[in-house]
């Protein structure tokens, strides 16, 4: 665990129950796919460092929320302190796609006065044969809300890395341009500590690690 990072971003992952939020996050943070996974209770926490440029690391704190309605009052409390979010739906579940709008409305209300930078994620893209939502309509919806769209699979490790790092980069750009700023009493973005010694040389080239299961 490396403590040197430029910023810390808090990201929230939302979407209907069983669209695969926890699996996506665990693939990203633990590098493996959990076949069986109990429904998330309330909220769960994960973290990982992402290197957006050589030597520039961002620490991501990822809030995994329960999709179940009964925990909504808990998960709502986490919108406010999030700078970014992944809004997931399951490409094999049309209903979860239809609820995207509702999710966005909900976050808008509860994130006030802040705004969350969202990316729309069509998950379980390995199950293409059971697809119920076309890429085209998903992209259209994303564009309508000013979001990017990406399709991912936690099971086959498709685009997982990209979904998180792209979002991180986008937020980083906004921070750099001053459109998002660090504020007292807001946990979305925090400044890290710049080391005396630059450790860029020690960067390990990531190995081509595929799904372990």
């Amino acid at each position: 665990m490396e403590a040197i990072w430029l910023y810390q971003f808090r990201l929230i992952v939302i979407g209907d129950s069983t669209v695969g939020k926890s699996c996506l996050i665990r693939r990203f943070t633990e590098g493996r796919f959990a076949q069986v996974s109990d429904p998330t209770v309330g909220v769960d926490f994960f973290s990982r460092l992402v290197e957006i440029e050589p030597g520039k690391r961002i620490k991501l704190q990822i809030w995994d929320t329960a999709g179940q309605e009964r925990f909504r009052s808990i998960t709502r409390a986490y919108y406010r302190n999030s700078v970014g979010g992944l809004l997931l739906f399951d490409i094999t579940n049309r209903r979860s796609f239809q609820n995207v709008h509702e999710w966005l409305e909900e976050t808008k209300v509860h994130a006030q006065p802040y705004q969350i930078v969202f990316v729309l994620v069509g998950h379980k893209c390995d199950l293409d044969t059971q697809r119920q939502v076309t890429r085209h309509e998903a992209e259209k919806l994303a564009a309508a809300y000013g979001m990017k769209y990406i399709e991912t699979s936690a099971r086959d490790a498709i685009n997982v890395e990209k979904a998180f790092t792209d979002l991180t980069r986008d937020i980083y750009e906004l921070v750099k341009r001053g459109e998002i700023s660090i504020q007292e009493g807001w946990e979305g973005v925090k400044s890290g500590f710049v080391p005396n010694v630059v450790h860029s040389s020690e960067e390990v080239v990531k190995s081509d690690r595929r799904c372990l299961c």
Partner: peptide
Amino acid sequence: SDKDGMESPK
């Protein structure tokens, strides 16, 4: 589906 084989746990 450009598989990103880079899923390395950090």
